[in-house]
């Protein structure tokens, strides 16, 4: 399948090997950058506040 890469434009990639009619595989996002979702996961999964997340970042615990 063809996908739109933020840095490299249209590139070709392998699709998905299993077809499902009601819950098909989907390409939602490309590979994440290291730590791209640290804040988000800590917030919505673990319940950390924005302040706490900033503190952890400045302490070098997360990035």
């Amino acid at each position: 399948m063809e996908l739109d890469h933020p840095s490299f434009g249209k590139v070709k990639s392998l699709g998905f090997p299993i077809f499902m009619s009601d819950s098909p595989a989907r390409l939602q996002s490309l590979a994440p950058c290291k730590g791209q979702h640290s804040g988000q996961v800590l917030h919505d999964l673990l319940g950390y506040s924005e302040d706490a997340i900033n503190q952890l970042t400045s302490d070098g615990v997360i990035a």
Binding site: L14, G15, F16, P17, I18, F19, M20, S21, D22, S23
Partner: peptide, 29 residues
């Protein structure tokens, strides 16, 4: 694997579905 995925979903929603794992699609992987 496809069947397990569909069953997991079915157990949650009560709905079955159609799935196909073609020899060709698998072999591309």
């Amino acid at each position: 694997l496809g069947i397990m995925l569909a069953l997991y979903q079915r157990n949650r929603t009560g709905e079955g579905q159609y799935l196909d794992a073609s020899l060709y699609g698998a072999q591309l992987f």
